[in-house]
Design a protein around this nucleic acid. Sequence first.
RNA 1: GCGGGGGUGUCCGAGUUAGGUCAAAGGAGACAGGCUUAGGACCUGUUGGCGUAGGCCUGCGUGGGUUCAAGUCCCACCCCCCGCACCA
Length: 963
Amino acid sequence: MAVMDVLRQIEEKWRKAWEEARIFEADPDPNRKKCMVTFPFSYMNGPLHVGHGFTATRVDAYVRFKRMQGYNVLFPWAWHWTGETIAGASERIKDGDEEFIHALRDIDGVSEENLKKFVDPTYMASYYTKVSRKAVKRMGFSIDWRREFHTTSLCPTFSKFIEWQCERLHEKGYIVQGTYPVVWCPRCESPTGDHDRQVGEGVAPEEYVLMKFKMGDAYLPAATFRPETIYGVTNMWIHPDADYVKAQVNGEQWVISEIAANKLEEQKRKIAIISKFKGREIIGKHFVSPLNNRKMLVLPGWFVSPSNATGVVYSVPAHAPFDWVALRDLQGKPELLKEFGIDADSVKKIQPISMIRVDGFGEHPAVEMVERMGVKDQYDLKAEEATKLLYKKEFHSGVLKDICGEHSGKMVSEMKESLIQDFKEKGFADSMHDLPQPVVCRCLTPCVVKILEDQWFLKYSDEAWKEKAKEALSKASVYPKSAIQWFLNIIDWLREWPCARKTGLGTPLPWSPGWIVETLTDSTVYMAFYTINKHIKQYDIKAAQLSHEVFDYLFYGRGDVKKVAEKSRVNRQVLESMRSEFLYWYPLDLRVSAKELVPNHLTFFLFHHAALFPKHLPKAIGVNGVLSIEGKKMSKSKGNFVTLRSALDQYGADATRCALLLGGEGMGDPDWRSENVRDVRVKLKGFYNLANGVIETAREKKVGHLEEWLISVLQHRIKNVTENMEVLKTRTATENALFEVWNDFRWYARRKGKTDSKVLKHALETWVRLLAPFAPYVCEEIWNKIESDDFVSLAEWPRYDEQKVNLRAEEAESLIKNVLEDTSNILRATKMVPKKICYYSAAPWKWKAYLTALKKSTSAKITLNDLMKELMTHSDLKEMAKKVSKFARQIVDEANQMPDDKRNRLVKIESVDEHQTLREAESFFEGEFNAKIYVYGEEDPQRHDPKKKAELARPYRPAIYIE
RNA sequence: GCGGGGGUGUCCGAGUUAGGUCAAAGGAGACAGGCUUAGGACCUGUUGGCGUAGGCCUGCGUGGGUUCAAGUCCCACCCCCCGCACCA
């Protein structure tokens, strides 16, 4: 039968068997230690892919491992429907977005019939939930499905839980109202996030400082990021052909571009247009500096963009390359000024005013920069680059010169904020938000910045809350440890987080109609809901019954059960059982996610647990890398998107699981390569065959050296896999459980020449259990053939048994490996075809000297002198002092440099019977080298030793002679 | 820019916390042999270079340094990936 068929049948068989036996359903059991592990519910706007599979398989492997260790393990599952994306996807289908529909049809495998129904977001979500649930089951994840749910008001009982959660946060002052600038689509009437943009990904609103220069009865609010340069102003730039307005802005008259006036209306300004005109109409007029009433000219600047901030720009030619080039353009071409009726001389007279000192530049950095880079004129693209470079330089290392009044002598980078503050207080400055680059919504509408009022925020800026989150973090184990610093940085960096939106699926904010709880907010403490959802479903408890009092009782033990039961009409015993179930399972023992959730979900998870469940803080957090596909980032549009289902169809569950697990651990990004997965599949089939062979042929009861060796090394594998699993090093664990053990078996077979030992079958029992968390299906099948009665999924995890460790057997085996290697090496170097190979084991006195040296070097480095002194206290050695001293010279360095654990091991086992060990391996060596093997003691008078090799023998290093 | 993670042999990928067992696990690929004969199957071995005796040389991003000894420690530099907010 083909590989796939056998494995597929096995999978089907055991998936059903597990389901029927309900072995993954977990109920509280006070006699057993519990372990609750979760995987973040995934968003159902598409099918699960192998990226989900990677993290989830790590979770399941851990869960299975813990279950086998005897823990009462709960692994629940749920689905995330909250947010705008599903609704947005439906919208795109309604609009007939071909590219999008194509992706759903070809990658997700959605039928035409279903596609039509996708215009209903609820249908879409439930469709993907159904498909994904099937894939999750096929993967062999050991889930208690009785606790399953999905989010949003479409699951009213869960919605009630979210309401409760929000109320409690609100009460504690962690949800507050505030006002914030956002990128806004006027057509969609909602904020436009990065993913919803056609143009302008990554563009965020920036706050421009507006320096207000008086011009007649109005102000020219010039927009800048560098308000400190006001000390170097020489003139104003206005685009002559752009549309400007004079407008009443919050009680003042401003001259700004018409576009700017519209923008300001979205930013909480009261705007009344007084007049409209082209820019040229104010060119040639004078304005004054707010600092000292210095009079300056408004000049034509064609580089000015009316759609950037106010469309009014002040000129600092000493420090701004654009300003200098534009001024130079006018000075060099007086004819440009004619049409504006400006006197060319007065423009010629304008000199750059130097006001920042910066290393590497003289008086006028902008002038130098323009010359260095050869910027031709204000239309030259290099002007932009020059501006950026100089800005950076002056910001980081610039110092304000004496003409800057009270700010003189200060570093630009250090005084900027306080200067803005100061100017605003004095009424010289104002500000506005704008986008540094154009942003266009997916609906093709250009976006603006809108100041949103009365939004609801999670107050992550709260210092006390941050402290609690950090404490929660410090109490949790984090795997890998290197993620801790990242979490700490994120906790510090987090500020207000908008926690409600106007559109999309979700739970309405209970106290503020029209707002819907945002997706990251409703996914912070929902794991607590798993503990009680079993009862909610079992007893058909309705949402209306789940009042805040009920949750308060369940989670906090607040109130009188009798009254709570009466009021909610939930049976009292049920309530009590829910309460104790929560107390049993919570806190969470482990939550694992990909690292992309560190800056948001996982940190929020900590914050919210610290706020709502301070007595039930998560015990551990696992973070892993993000899976790529054939070396590239997974993406539907690029076509390299692998759904879990397609992986299962092609490779089966065990291979998919193992390939994912072997892909990586820690924060490194694993890679999915179909070639690899195929190889893993073949490997697993090989394992299956090997195991069957061992089971069928086992009959030899005799336990010899090699059997002892195998059982001994197996102990190290057990220890290794166990220790790595404890810290979620799933890759290392899988690698050891699959390949390293395999190699042990292989070496055994090679040495022994046959595989009919019962010990081998016994070792297989251990091996199968070690591998079961990773490849549960095939292991279940083999286990069944060995044991027949129980599930390997419930079998006892192998225990490291120090009694079974046989260091002497291990050293003896490593001696054989070394001799094998040395012999091969000699054969390679000499290109001989051996007829006869002689091995000479080291003489007893050498062993004695060797062990003396090792023991002596345990505590401190030894010298040749010291060693000799000690050796000479033995009369037998003293008789052969010359030989001994020659030998001692050889071993003193070896003893000193030997790693401690190896030295300890050798000291502990005293010595191996080298001669005997080699004798026993004679037939093995004969088979390997196809030559006659002779084993002698180095001082054996009968030895065949024409080249006098025997005396070279050292402990663990027999001398070799080949002919 | 800020923050996090990385750069290892043909490729993937351990090892770096505690320097020596490291020419460097394991897997893949390649090569050779077996099996058997067309199957991308299975088993075994080899896989940095050199070498007529178990050795030597070169090597873990680059350049320095510490040490008897460095992939592992210190300093400087270069390069790659990821996150940076109203979005799941």
